[in-house]
Amino acid sequence: MKLDSAEARKALADIDDVARRVRQSRIYDLASRVMIMWGVLVFAGNLANWLSPRDGGAIWIAVNTLGVGGTVTLSILDMRRTGMHSFDLRVAAAFVLYFAFGLFCSVVLGHFGPRQMGTFWPVYAMLFYVLAGLWFGRAFVAIGLGITVLTLIGYFFVTGYAFMLWMAVTNGGGLIVGGLCMRRD
């Protein structure tokens, strides 16, 4: 069988394209599970905060602790199931640095109130999604931008405690819907 160099190049490009799709599919699979889990937690956190505004601090510490623990658990389970590292230590380190910077801005520099906190963290988290999407796939960018816009609409136009209900639906619900859409992709 004879092949010229153009055909050989096309075959190699095809191989690269499929390998890239497989990698992206692995990342989407894990990320969608993590996203749905965070969506449920954020939905529950906002609802609990709406019901008991005074306990906001404790509620969000619990949500974040459960979220980080759940993310690590899902990553380990995924690695055992597939034998592949979808995320490595550098990604984890970047996440920790990103979180520390957010804490520094919102608590040390900013002295944000509950409403500002409730807006800053989702928008800041979605910025991470958008940046990750530049490498890992357009779905992250679309979900990140969509939730950011909805969060800002809530911040500027939804008054009082209803803001938390808005955030439960748009932020928690947005992550759940985004994760489910990603699984269909």
Binding site: D14, I15, V18, A19, R21, V22, R23, T82, G83, M84
Partner: peptide, 9 residues
Amino acid sequence: AALNALPSG
């Protein structure tokens, strides 16, 4: 190409 992109097994 797809199967080869996965770990062995």
